[in-house]
Structures are given as structure tokens and as C-alpha cells.
């Protein structure tokens, strides 16, 4: 072990190496490592956020779906109610119209019947009178038997 100026030379070399390493080697590598760490952390955070957002969206979608279903059910119920109402109304209207027409027809029939009966009565009376006249022309005076004829007319 003999010491010589190598000791000094090595020390200077060492100082230079450390200086170079400290200035040009360590910082860029550490920066890159830090940047990557940050990138990864950001990525993970974004993934977490995305997951959270997905959960929220799923929840919202489920809510929307439920609302829509409820709304649809309501609309359907309303439509059914309305349809029933319309059918009911139509039924009522038809029935009323039917009744009305029936009543009108009946009235008509009655009127026609009455008229027919009236004219028939008239004709029968005339016929009877004519017949009677023909019979009685020979033996009965129309004037003298008018009472009887009128009584007969009234009975028919």
C-alpha cells in the first residue's frame, strides 16, 4: 500500500463524475420517472372518475327507464279510460238515437194507423151510408133516417 498522487487524481475524477451525474444524468431520469408516475396516477384517477360516471349514468338511465315506464303506464291507463269512455258515450248516443228513432217510428206508425183508421172509418161510413142509401132509396128517406145513420156512424 503505497499512496501517491493517484489519490488526488481519483478525488478530482470522482468530484467531476458526481457533478456530471448530478447535473446531466439524475434530473432528466427523475423527471421522466415523476412524469410517468403522474401520468399513471392521472390515468388511474380518470379511470376511477369514468367508473363513477358510468355508475351515475347507469343509475340515471335506470331512473329514466322507470319514469318512462310509469309514464307509459299512465298514458296507457288514460287511453284505456278514454277508450272506455268513448265506447260508453257511443253506446249511449247510439241507444238514445235508437230510442229516438224507435219513438219517432212508433209515433209515425201510430199516426199512420190513426189516419188509416180515420179514413177507413170515413170510407166504411160512406160505404155503409151508400149501401144503406141504395137499400133504403127504395124505402127510406135519407132525411128521416139521418138520426139512425149518424148513430151508426158514431158506433163504427
Amino acid at each position: 500500500m503505497n499512496f501517491n498522487a493517484t489519490l488526488i487524481g481519483q478525488s478530482i475524477t470522482f468530484v467531476f463524475f458526481v457533478w456530471f451525474c448530478m447535473k446531466y444524468v439524475w434530473p432528466p431520469i427523475m423527471n421522466a420517472l415523476e412524469a410517468r408516475k403522474k401520468q399513471i396516477a392521472d390515468g388511474l384517477a380518470a379511470a376511477d372518475r369514468g367508473k363513477h360516471e358510468l355508475e351515475l349514468a347507469a343509475k340515471k338511465a335506470a331512473d329514466n327507464m322507470r319514469d318512462a315506464k310509469a309514464q307509459a303506464a299512465e298514458v296507457l291507463a288514460q287511453a284505456e279510460k278514454r277508450a272506455a269512455q268513448i265506447v260508453e258515450d257511443a253506446k249511449n248516443a247510439a241507444k238514445a238515437e235508437g230510442d229516438r228513432q224507435l219513438a219517432a217510428a212508433q209515433a209515425n206508425i201510430e199516426m199512420e194507423t190513426n189516419r188509416a183508421r180515420e179514413s177507413l172509418r170515413e170510407q166504411v161510413a160512406q160505404l155503409a151510408v151508400a149501401g144503406a142509401e141504395k137499400i133504403l132509396r127504395r124505402e127510406v128517406n135519407a132525411q128521416s133516417h139521418a138520426d139512425l145513420l149518424n148513430q151508426l156512424k158514431a158506433e163504427l
Binding site: 463524475f17 456530471f20 446531466y24 444524468v25 439524475w26 432528466p28 431520469i29 421522466a32 410517468r36
Partner: peptide, 19 residues
């Protein structure tokens, strides 16, 4: 050897990226 070390590490440091 010291220069070898610095050369390789400097080379890596220069091209160091977060990728």
C-alpha cells in the same frame, strides 16, 4: 469505466420520456 457509466446513463437520460 466512469465515463462508460456516464455515457450510458447520459444517453438514457437524454432520451428519457414518460412513455
Amino acid at each position: 469505466l466512469g465515463l462508460l457509466f456516464l455515457l450510458f446513463f447520459r444517453k438514457a437520460a437524454k432520451s428519457a420520456t414518460a412513455g
